[in-house]
Nucleic acid binder design. Sequence first.
DNA 1: CGATAATGTCTTGCGTGCGATTTAATTGCC
DNA 2: GGCAATTAAATCGCACGCAAGACATTATCG
Lengths: 161, 161
Amino acid sequence: MSDAGLTLGLEEDPLLLDRQICFPLYAATNLLGRLYGPVLGKLNLTYPQYLDMLVLWEQQPQTIGALGARLYLDSGTLTPLLKRMEGAGLLSRARDPNDERRVVVTLTERGKTLRSQALHVPETMANGYNAEGVDALRDSVRDLVSILAQHSTRSRGSKTA
Amino acid sequence: MSDAGLTLGLEEDPLLLDRQICFPLYAATNLLGRLYGPVLGKLNLTYPQYLDMLVLWEQQPQTIGALGARLYLDSGTLTPLLKRMEGAGLLSRARDPNDERRVVVTLTERGKTLRSQALHVPETMANGYNAEGVDALRDSVRDLVSILAQHSTRSRGSKTA
DNA sequence: CGATAATGTCTTGCGTGCGATTTAATTGCC
DNA sequence: GGCAATTAAATCGCACGCAAGACATTATCG
């Protein structure tokens, strides 16, 4: 109805794109995925698959639920993703004999070996940027993630803490 | 081959998930989208559609290219998205008579009116978080975005600067 | 003026993400 | 032991996001 012309100096338009925290995060994620794409493509990995491998290279085997807790994803996303990676020969999926509800993901030799080829990815990506402030930014965003995760009903809260 | 056991104190494993800047950004974006979802659902908007509307509420009409430059997206993403929004009656799309290559996006009355219902979204989302540090974090991520955008061949660089 | 290059959008194919539902297995509870 | 509640994955439908290519329009250059 009105033009909202009553806002004086103090309260600015809350809908300005540049006031949102969500937009830079959204844009940065998209841009980063675009930059990672060609580099990871040489390893026949997509961006989410790469993140999955990072988790598995750290600890392995792991259940789908544990992977999801770490990456803040659920089985609706992970199941098809892992099936593609299984098809690519990077890992195998099998029901946990002790609890047939769970599916345990195990790296194949091919999956383990790929790690050596991935070792250069971080520095390739960092090429050109000075790491100044990046560490602090990463920690700040990580703090935001932990706050957001608390407010999330999904992503099973089976945290270690 | 080897276990990479030669890393002494100085150089840690570059593939640790917690060393990556990309992962918190990825997780934060996903979590944020999940939190925005239900709120925006009441306005029959998705998260990317909401960002689109933020741009259009600021300036309108705009070409698809201009929208893409602002959101760091290309027409491959925007065209189907805008068609859905057109189908929802929020906007109209028409070729620019002065340059038939361009498509100009114009808000309908319904699209303009929706803004008043969206005004409460930012504070609804911020509910619970203290804005302490959020502004600084937003600016830091924005700086990262502008750096990433420079390295991106896509997202037509027709910047105002 | 005509051929060619550049530009802006559309289309296609594929891989996520997510809400919602379904199915199977385990836990609780009596 | 038996049955409801809970849990873990899988499945389904939909909406992105992107690379690559197709297409029409405009600009450029000889």
